[in-house]
Simulated scan of single mutants.
Amino acid sequence: MSPVDLKTTGFGTRAIHAGQEPDPVTQAVIPPISLSTTFKQSAAGVHSGYDYSRSGNPTRNGFETAVAALEGGKYGLGFASGSSVTATIISTLGAGSHLISVNDVYGGTYRYFTKVASKNGVEATFVNLSVAKNIEKHFKPNTKLVWIETPTNPTLCIIDIRAIAEIAHAHGAYLVVDNTFMSPYFQNPLSLGADVVVHSVTKYINGHSDVVMGVAVTSDETLYEKIQFMQNSMGAVPSAFDCYLARRGLMTLEIRMQRHEQNAKTIAAYLEKNEHIEAVIYPGLASHPQHELAKRQQKGFGGMVSFRTKGTLDNVNKMLGHLQYITLAESLGGVESLIEVPAVMTHGSVSPEDRAVLGITDTLVRLSVGIENVEDLINDLKQALDKAYL
């Protein structure tokens, strides 16, 4: 069997075959999980590419290779969680550094920047980047990194990756893009000028709510070596079994994302017409203020929908309590539909004042649309919303 040509194959083919060659000994189509923590050396300091599993593991390497191929990058690095990706990248900056982050950022990232990085001498400035030029006045001589998500979590604001990359590079900073919400299927930030793209693998890439992992991808060899050194030194690496599960999930990413988006579009359109909904936020709707930007830099609109209900948190809780198929839980990107209230769940670590500025109110609801039958999901939302306002 000839090696897969990663430069010419389609997304689905790469998702299945990249980093996934049949076992050279048994010819098993699915390579066995490499659980060994250490590897035999032919002489002192001479090995076949693996010496200790924290530094590198065959199963992890297969997963890293596959994600890098899907993101159009040269190097992939797997981590024990999405948060450990963040911590490891920030650790490369050093004390006395400054970073700029989009203000509407995942609560765990906000917490790390404000409660941990700040104590280690790294200052963070949070900026509304719905308009790219807003970032200009916030650069300092020691600004080394710009961190964005797009769409943002949870208000689904779209950030112009190419414009931010150009400005960051002009100031000598590099750009990191959290691409978790879009997955490599719908968006490839490296092709738009980003230097590093990161994912919480826990979400769409794994796709089955049974693995906690993270990954970083870059084509910059210098950045790769810095992050890899910190990865090995800090040791926040995933287990071989988790890498196996995530690689398995990756095989169906294309068809899963297609169904996530199809369902999300239908549900967003339904919610716009529901009498109990004040506003629907979905980049695939013409009503989204950055719909045209989303069409330019994305290949689709994804499976995340946020909406504002009428009434109060009491109405929201009544709705949540009557849902049958949609599960009240944190996280996103699984095959099952999950719903949450960011103000009191995923973004509880963000101060009330900052939540108010961002529009993360008690009646803002975030829905991760799964791949169930969409008619069942709409019926579930309808009956729960009707009961919430009796």
Results as ranks from 00 to 15, higher is better:
Asn179Lys: 10
Thr218Asp: 12
Gly45Ser: 15
Ile148Val: 14
Ile89Met: 13
Gly49Cys: 02
Asn120Leu: 11
Thr363His: 13
Leu323Val: 08
Glu375Leu: 08
Arg54Gly: 09
Asn134Val: 06
Ala68Glu: 03
Thr86Ile: 09
Val335His: 11
Lys40Pro: 07
His291Asp: 01
Leu367Thr: 07
Ser349Glu: 00
Lys137Trp: 02
Ser349Leu: 05
Val46Ile: 15
Gly370Gln: 01
Gly333Leu: 05
Glu225Lys: 15
Leu145Glu: 06
Ala246Cys: 11
Phe307Lys: 01
Val344Tyr: 03
Arg60Cys: 03
Val369His: 09
Val146Arg: 06
Gly49Val: 07
Lys203His: 15
Lys133Asn: 08
Thr88Glu: 08
Asn142Asp: 11
Ala240Ile: 01
Glu149Ile: 12
Ala44Asn: 05
Asn315Phe: 11
Glu272Trp: 04
Pro22Gly: 14
Gly78Tyr: 04
Val46Cys: 11
Leu253Tyr: 06
Asn373Leu: 09
Tyr270Leu: 07
Arg54Cys: 08
Leu190Cys: 13
Val341Asn: 11
Thr363Gln: 06
Ile30Asn: 02
Gly334Met: 09
Cys243Val: 04
Phe229Glu: 07
Tyr325Ser: 05
Lys382Glu: 08
Tyr75Glu: 13
Ala66Met: 13
Asp178Leu: 00
Ser351Ala: 14
Val215Thr: 03
Phe307His: 01
Lys310Ser: 03
Gln228Phe: 12
Gly300Asp: 00
Ala66Leu: 14
His322Ala: 09
Tyr106Ala: 13
Val116Ala: 07
Gln228Met: 12
His260Phe: 12
Tyr174Glu: 02
Asp314Glu: 15
Ala80Arg: 12
Thr13His: 14
Tyr110Cys: 10
Ser130Glu: 08
Val85Asn: 03
Leu190Asp: 13
Ser287Glu: 08
Asp104Ile: 03
His260Asn: 06
Ser368Arg: 06
Asp210Asn: 15
Ser368Asn: 13
Lys140Glu: 02
Val350His: 02
